[in-house]
C-alpha cells in the first residue's frame, strides 16, 4: 500500500507523459494522411469502425529511403556512443582517482558546457569550422593551406558536435561507478603479481562494466534520434531518421508516416534498454 503511494506520482507522470502520448502516436501511425485539420484520418471512424491500415509501417520498414535513414542513424549513434565512451572513460577514471575533496570542481568542469545553450554550442562549431571560420583562418595564416578545408557539413563536423554535446552524459555514470570502486581490489591484484595495465584490464575495467553500459546507452539513445546536430553540422546528403521524421512531419505534413517512424525508432531503442536491464539484473 505504502509502496503504491510512493510510486503513484511517478506512475502518473509516466502514464500522462509517456504512455498516453505513445498511444496517441500509435493511433496516428495507423491512420492515413488526409488534407484537413488535423492532417490525417484517424484509424477509427466516429462510429468506431476500423478504417486504419498498417501501410505506414510497411512503408517505413521496406522503403530503402527510410530503412537507410534508420541504419545510418544507428551507425551514427553507435559511433558517437563509442567515441564518447572512449573519451569519457579516462576522464572519469582520472577524476575518480583524485582525492574526494578535489573531485567536485572537476565534475563541474565536465558539466560546464551545459551552462551554454545547446544551439549556441552547435553554432560555435559552425563558427569554428566554416570556410571563413577560425580553424581555416588559423591554418591559412600559418600558410599550411591555400584554400579553406571543407570542414563544416561533413561527418567530422557532425561527430565533433555529437561527441561534444553528449560527452557529459557518458562521464557522469562512469564516474559514479569508478568513484565507488574498492582500491583494495586493485592493490590485491597488484600484490598477486598483476602489472598496472593488467590490473586495469582484469579488475578495474570489468567491475566498471555497468557504468560503461549506462554511459553508452545514455549517449546512444538520444543520439539515435538526434536531429539538430546532423542537420546543422553534418553532410546534407546523408539523411538521419531524426531529420527524415522532421521532414515528414513539417514539410510533407504526413503525420501518420512520421508517427510510424517515431514508433519504429522507439521500438528500436527499447531493445538495447531491455538488454541493459538484463545486464544490470545480473548479480
Amino acid at each position: 500500500m505504502r509502496r503504491l503511494a510512493v510510486l503513484a506520482p511517478a506512475s502518473a507522470w509516466l502514464a500522462l507523459f509517456v504512455a498516453a502520448p505513445a498511444v496517441v502516436l500509435l493511433g496516428i501511425a495507423l491512420g492515413e494522411a488526409d488534407a484537413g485539420v488535423p492532417p490525417f484520418r484517424p484509424p477509427f471512424a466516429a462510429d468506431g469502425t476500423w478504417q486504419g491500415s498498417f501501410a505506414n509501417f510497411a512503408t517505413v520498414l521496406t522503403d530503402p529511403f527510410y530503412r537507410d535513414a534508420f541504419l545510418r542513424s544507428l551507425v551514427v549513434a553507435f559511433a558517437t556512443a563509442s567515441l564518447c565512451l572512449l573519451i569519457a572513460y579516462p576522464m572519469a577514471l582520472a577524476i575518480a582517482r583524485v582525492p574526494e575533496a578535489r573531485r567536485t570542481p572537476l565534475l563541474l568542469a565536465v558539466l560546464l558546457p551545459f551552462w551554454t545553450g545547446f544551439l549556441i554550442r552547435v553554432g560555435a562549431w559552425i563558427g569554428l569550422l566554416r570556410d571563413a571560420g577560425w580553424l581555416n583562418g588559423v591554418l591559412r595564416a600559418l600558410g599550411l593551406i591555400e584554400a579553406p578545408l571543407p570542414l563544416l557539413y561533413s561527418d567530422l563536423a557532425m561527430y565533433l558536435g555529437m561527441v561534444h554535446a553528449y560527452l557529459p552524459f557518458a562521464v557522469l555514470p562512469l564516474h559514479a561507478v569508478l568513484a565507488r570502486r574498492d582500491p583494495a581490489l586493485e592493490e590485491a591484484a597488484a600484490g598477486l603479481g598483476a602489472r598496472p595495465a593488467t590490473v586495469f584490464l582484469t579488475v578495474t575495467l570489468p567491475l566498471s562494466a555497468p557504468g560503461a553500459a549506462a554511459a553508452f546507452l545514455l549517449v546512444f539513445i538520444p543520439a539515435a534520434g538526434e536531429f539538430v546536430i546532423p542537420d546543422l553540422l553534418g553532410p546534407p546528403e546523408a539523411q538521419l531518421v531524426g531529420r527524415v521524421l522532421w521532414g515528414e512531419f513539417f514539410q510533407n505534413r504526413d503525420w501518420p508516416l512520421a508517427a510510424a517512424l517515431a514508433v519504429v525508432l522507439l521500438a528500436l531503442l527499447i531493445l538495447p534498454l531491455r538488454l541493459f536491464q538484463r545486464l544490470e539484473a545480473r548479480p
Partner: peptide, 27 residues
Amino acid sequence: PYRRPVAMMFQNYALFPHLDVFDNVAY
C-alpha cells in the same frame, strides 16, 4: 608491489566480486 615475493591478505579480503572462487584463487 607486483614484483615483490610477498602476498597480502586484506582485512575485508578484497576478493574479486566478478570472479568465482576458482578464478579468484587462480589470479
